[in-house]
Amino acid sequence: MQLLRAPSLFVTICSLAIGALAAPSPVPATNATLVSQVTHVGRGTFFDPDGGIGACGFVEQNTDHIVAIGSQRFANGGNCNQWIQISANGKTAFGLTRDSCPGCGVNDLDLTPALFQKFAPLDVGVITVTWNFLPFGFQPPS
């Protein structure tokens, strides 16, 4: 009787070991996921792109919801075309990273006039913004 239990026990142990090896391991969070979990607070200003080409290589218009981020955070273009969720004065809007702002602090944003006006009139000039990157591939609601 003992001989029959030993192979059965061996098969059970092997099955458990194979199951443990085949189980999926946790997937580490991507950089975009980690970055989107960080909330930044900085100054919000506006710039006039006037149809020029931004640091990401795209033509920018005043009517676009474009964001220029501080050169320290621009990451040599690694954040190009990444959406940002911005809040200020009790309002929230989305802006697309398409430019670098050499005069901005690390947490500051420079917005196109159309985007800045979602939060305040242009004559205000400077607002406090709270913002975070959204994962690559995010599309704001229409």
Rank of each mutant, 00 (worst) to 15 (best):
V129L: 00
I84K: 00
Q61I: 07
G105R: 10
K91P: 01
T92L: 02
S25F: 12
F47L: 06
A23Q: 13
G44T: 02
N62H: 07
V41E: 11
Q139T: 11
V126T: 11
K118Y: 01
A22I: 12
C101V: 03
G54F: 01
Q72G: 03
C101T: 06
A114W: 06
G51P: 05
C80V: 05
T12C: 14
F10V: 11
T45A: 05
F46A: 02
T33E: 15
L16G: 13
T97L: 04
C101H: 08
S100C: 04
Q85I: 00
N76S: 13
A23W: 14
L122S: 08
L16T: 10
L9T: 11
G70F: 00
P102L: 03
N132C: 02
P141T: 10
V129G: 00
A120G: 06
S142P: 12
G42K: 03
Q117L: 03
C101L: 04
A75F: 04
S25A: 15
P7G: 10
I18L: 15
Q82F: 00
D50W: 07
P135I: 01
L3D: 15
Q61L: 13
F47H: 11
G78L: 05
T39E: 14
Q61P: 07
W131E: 02
I84T: 09
T45N: 07
V11D: 14
T92N: 05
